[in-house]
């Protein structure tokens, strides 16, 4: 196995190098006690020798492809898929209302829905963040869930976009539904309690919690593109460093190189 690998590694050296050194290099390998570190050493030697003879275009293309592939592969290993369930709600008014109270109504709804007790209830009911719960305090889990929830007013309309992002599509949808139910319950409760200023408002579900059809993040195309750009940058640095250490032709004064 080692013998085959080392013979294969010799073939990885540039053809011009092989024409000049292959016979004596093979003789050295026959003499030496080859171990796995030698296999790696010959492989690295081939890589170095190749890069010293490559043109800028070849270096740039290789580094860019390697960067894109590496970052793309790392994104699969290190960044788990996230699924986002969306819903759209609309604010309803029963009668003429005081301007500004709508914002107050929404803020109270959000405070209720994002409260510690409400979120812990959803986390436990939907069995969310099981891995994190094994190592993190519940307060941190609640904070993490708050980051995964998004409330956004759609332009200047009375509609709100509510979303929840999670690592499992079905759990994302079910939890999103729980959030919507919680918002609706808080709305009814405020109306029933005749809360001053906001009791005239209500909520209507325009779009129920969606079942995500595919992951919403990470965007692996963007990650691979960043890897490609980083590869190009590294290629430019490599070529610059190589140019600085370009050797003087044979016969020149040693220090002139």
């Amino acid at each position: 196995m080692r013998e085959r690998l080392i013979r294969f590694a010799i073939r990885l050296y540039p053809a011009s190098w092989r024409r000049r050194y292959a016979v004596e290099f093979a003789a050295l390998l026959d003499d030496a006690n080859r171990d796995w570190s030698d296999v790696l050493d010959v492989l690295l030697g081939a890589l170095k020798m190749q890069t010293t003879t490559w043109t800028f275009g070849k270096i740039a293309a290789s580094f860019a492809v390697a960067g894109a592939v590496l970052c793309g592969a790392l994104s699969f290993v290190a960044i788990p898929d996230k699924y986002t369930s969306d819903a759209v709600l609309r604010l309803q008014t029963a009668k003429a209302v005081i301007p500004g109270n709508a914002e107050r109504f929404v803020i109270i709804l959000m405070e209720n829905t994002l409260s510690r007790s409400s979120l812990i209830d959803i986390i436990k009911k939907q069995n969310l963040y099981t891995r994190e719960r094994a190592s993190m305090p519940l307060e941190d889990i609640v904070e993490k869930m708050r980051h995964d929830i998004s409330f956004e007013r759609l332009g200047k309309s009375e509609a709100f976009h509510v979303s929840f992002r999670y690592g499992n599509a079905l759990q994302a949808q079910r939890s999103e539904q729980e959030l919507i139910d919680s918002l609706m319950a808080a709305s009814v409760s405020m109306r029933n309690a005749d809360t001053p200023g906001v009791h005239s408002y209500g909520l209507e579900v325009l779009d129920p919690a969606s079942l995500p059809q595919g992951p919403s993040s990470p965007n692996r195309l963007v990650i691979a593109s960043l890897g490609l750009a980083a590869g190009l940058l590294l290629a430019a640095v490599t070529v610059a460093v190589r140019a600085r250490s370009t050797v003087a032709p044979a016969g020149n004064s040693p220090k002139s190189s």
């Binding site: 190098w17 050194y21 050295l28 020798m49 032709p249 190189s257």
Partner: peptide
Amino acid sequence: LGPGTLYGAITRLEERGW
């Protein structure tokens, strides 16, 4: 010195005329 490292050095030294 591994074989790859040794021949990397030999190649550079010969190129430089040393």
